[in-house]
């Protein structure tokens, strides 16, 4: 799986993770989580590898991946911006937040910027309704986001990337 050291390292980590699970039945979701954490997305290669290791048909794995919006089979940018579109966030203006991100990044929801720095997507409720509207960028949660903060949030990410 892959040629360079970076992917080999990730591959070893995934392998170790799977090997450390004693009861592999019911481990699929946890393994997919870890794999996506490592690679950023679930490639066909990863799907087939997990299929072989867990002895689960890839058709079933693909079914699970496509069922949960959290999982993705497309390569994503360094920063994955998830705008919560759940009921509470929606009521408190999530739509406008999404539109602003689309405008600033010049991409539509579900797309990535050409330099693969940002991926924009919507999700349904992350359980932080008290902070609505919520935006999650990778693991970081931004609460009570306002439209005029968005430019700054993007700049922060860009600065960090450098």
């Amino acid at each position: 799986m892959g040629g360079n050291c970076d992917t080999q390292e990730k591959f070893a980590e995934l392998q170790n993770f799977i090997d450390s699970i004693e009861d592999k039945r019911g481990a699929l979701i946890a393994v997919l989580h870890r794999a996506q954490q490592l690679y950023g997305y679930l490639s066909n290669e990863v799907i087939f590898y997990v299929s072989e290791k867990l002895v689960i048909p890839s058709s079933k794995i693909y079914g699970v991946i496509s069922f949960y919006s959290y999982f993705t089979t497309k390569q994503r940018g360094k920063y994955v911006i998830n705008v919560c579109l759940g009921t509470a966030c929606f009521v408190r203006g999530a739509e406008a937040i999404m539109k602003e991100f689309e405008k600033e990044l010049n991409i539509k929801a579900g797309e990535s910027t050409k330099d693969m720095k940002f991926t924009l997507s919507g999700l349904r409720c992350i359980g932080a309704c008290g902070l609505a509207p919520v935006v999650m960028i990778n693991d970081k949660v931004y609460g009570r986001v306002e439209v005029d903060q968005i430019k700054k949030i993007i700049e922060e990410c860009e600065k960090e990337a450098e």
């Binding site: 799907i47 048909p57 890839s58 058709s59 079933k60 794995i61 693909y62 079914g63 496509s66 069922f67």
Partner: peptide, 24 residues
């Protein structure tokens, strides 16, 4: 899946968007 154990057909997506398809 259960009788033939060929494991080709599986549901993809969910809700209204669900359809039955081969792997990937």
């Amino acid at each position: 899946n259960e009788v033939q154990t060929v494991h080709v057909l599986s549901p993809v997506n969910r809700g209204f968007d669900t359809f039955i398809a081969p792997s990937l």
